[in-house]
Structures are given as structure tokens and as C-alpha cells.
Design a protein around this nucleic acid. Structure first.
Lengths: 161, 161
DNA sequence: TTGATAATTGACGTTTGCGTTAGTGATAGC
DNA sequence: GCTATCACTAACGCAAACGTCAATTATCAA
């Protein structure tokens, strides 16, 4: 049953326009990502129209997060999403016993990639926390200056009467 | 005395090469930032060599932070550092009383810019925190899978004897 | 079946953020 | 005064990440 749900999620039924609308990127961008290997070549309708799945949508969103939040290049992002490919490959070709070593090394690879992402995020989070603190202090200072100036103005207005 | 220190910090005495070394950007980049209005045109030696101050170094570092952490474009960064200009202008032409309104509106401008930065940072921090949490869960999951596989392997090894 | 949309490939264009010469002048140590 | 750096301007170059036609074909609703 879990399998059925998985299949339902993977059922490609979205045209490129809808994916574009939902993810906020252009059709051009979707084709571009495909060309660069960031998205797997989607299945097609008889006429050749691309058909995307919900998984593909999730993937595009992930790419955008890696771009916007971490500032990674598409080349770097490609490396990371390739690890996702391996996951799906693992799930598809589920040959349980014999190749345990192979599966182990792939899980290991995924662990490494995930740890790298985590390191990047952690470093950025730290630096940004520092920056936010400084900004807060700055703001407080300006607010003070502003209050002073307001007082000055009202005083000089009072003395002018 | 505070004024003397400020002047000491502003004393331009660094050549472009040293600034490049200290900030980790190239000389080309420094000239480029100047061209784009991100750095004020520095003073020059008799022969025309640029002379930077410590304040300039700090500015370059700030630019780099805004680029790397927030992913802002140079155009956006320019807007922000222009507010810094106003600060220095305020400090230089310290005409206390008369133009209180003018000073108020400039402080107000700086407050707005700072708040914008703060908003960007806050949003990013939040999104990144979510991402970090997800990554943590992912990692935990993989570790589990890894442990399972290890167990499988040792078991099949045992049954093979 | 006939428009009105929506998608396809291919190719060239654009912006950002610098890199990279090239040719010339400035500074400093010996 | 020579020479080894260092810096100057000007101009062209370039990779990344798409944008923008153009010409053609699909899909779908009426």
C-alpha cells in the first residue's frame, strides 16, 4: 500500500506549464535544468509533451532552496541531487541480499553529501546570526539617535516661541 | 580624542595590493567596486596610486558578507552601502542645530535600510533553520539504514560459515 | 474540423561579476 | 641611475543562468 502511494506520487501527470506555475520558475528554466542534468528527463505524452511528477516538483523546489538559501551553483547542486538519483535507483532496483556492500557504499555517499550540506548550512547560520545581532545593535543605536533628534527639535521649537 | 582616533582609522595608508591581500578579493575587484559606486573613490598618492583606509577594508568585508550570506546583487548592495555614505557625511559635516529635520530624515533612511537587511536575514535564517532540521532527520535516517545494512552483512557472513 | 492555447526544439541575446591581457608609468632598494 | 615590483587605464573576454524569439507541432474544446 505504501508502494501504491509512492507510485501515485510518481505518476507523471503534470505538463510543463503547470510545473512552471507551481514552482515559480519558467518553462525555459525547467528545460534548462533537464539539459544540465538537474532534472531527470521526464516521460512524454504521445505528441512529445513533457509529463512531470510531484517528485519532480519537489525537486525543483529543492534546487531553488539550494540556490537561494545556500547560494550554490547549478554544478554544485547537480552533485547533490545526483545523490537523490541514487536513492530512487536503490528503491527501484531493490535487490535485497547479494549486494549489501554496494548498497552500503551508496548510503555512505548519501551521508557524505548530506553532511556537506549540513556543514554549509551550519556555517552560514552562524555567520548570519552574528550579522543579525550586529544589525539589531545598529538599529537600537539609530533609534536612540532618532529620539535625541526629536527631543532637540521639540526643544528648539519651544525656545522659539 | 575620539575624533583623533576616528581620523587615525580614516588615514588612507594602504595600497591596493595590501587591501586585496587582506580582504581576499583581487585588485580588479576593488577597482570594479569603485567603478560601480560600491567604494568611494579613494585618495591617491602623487603618482596616482590608490590609498585606502581601514574603513575601506571594513567596507569591502561588508560587501562580501552581503554577497555571500544574503546573495544580494551588487546593485542591491550599492543601495545599502550608500546609506553608509550618508553616515559619514553626517559625521563630517556636523552642523548641529539648524538642519535637525534633515538629519532626522537621514537617520530615518538608515533605519529603513537596516530594517530591510534585517528582514532579509530573518527570513533566510528561518528557512535555513527548517532546512537544517530536515537535513538532521535525513542524516539520522541514513545512519539507521547504514546500521541495518551492517547488521545484515554480519549476519549473512555468520550463516555462510 | 477548426481555432485557441500550450509545448517543442534551436539558436542567438543578455546581465552579472569579474578575469585577463596589453601597454605604460610610479616607487623603492641597491 | 638601474631594475624589480607595484600600480594605472583601457579594452576585450568569459562563464553562469537563464531570456527571447522563431518556426513548427500537439491538445483540446466547441
Amino acid at each position: 500500500m505504501a508502494e501504491k502511494e509512492t507510485r501515485a506520487r510518481d505518476l507523471p501527470c503534470l505538463q510543463i506549464g503547470e510545473v512552471a506555475d507551481r514552482t515559480g520558475v519558467t518553462q525555459r528554466t525547467l528545460r534548462f535544468y533537464e539539459e544540465r542534468g538537474l532534472l531527470r528527463p521526464p516521460s512524454r505524452m504521445d505528441g512529445g509533451f513533457r509529463l512531470y511528477s510531484e517528485d519532480d516538483v519537489a525537486r525543483v523546489e529543492q534546487i531553488k532552496r539550494l540556490q537561494n538559501l545556500l547560494g550554490l551553483t547549478l554544478a554544485e547542486i547537480k552533485e547533490m541531487v545526483e545523490a537523490e538519483e541514487i536513492k530512487e535507483e536503490l528503491r527501484a532496483t531493490y535487490r535485497p541480499d547479494l549486494e549489501v556492500d554496494e548498497r552500503l557504499s551508496r548510503v555512505q555517499k548519501r551521508i557524505e553529501v548530506t553532511e556537506r550540506q549540513d556543514n554549509i548550512i551550519s556555517a552560514k547560520l552562524e555567520a548570519m546570526a552574528v550579522m543579525k545581532k550586529e544589525l539589531g545593535e545598529k538599529l537600537a543605536h539609530y533609534q536612540e539617535v532618532k529620539a535625541d533628534l526629536h527631543k532637540q527639535r521639540s526643544e528648539s521649537a519651544a525656545s522659539a516661541t
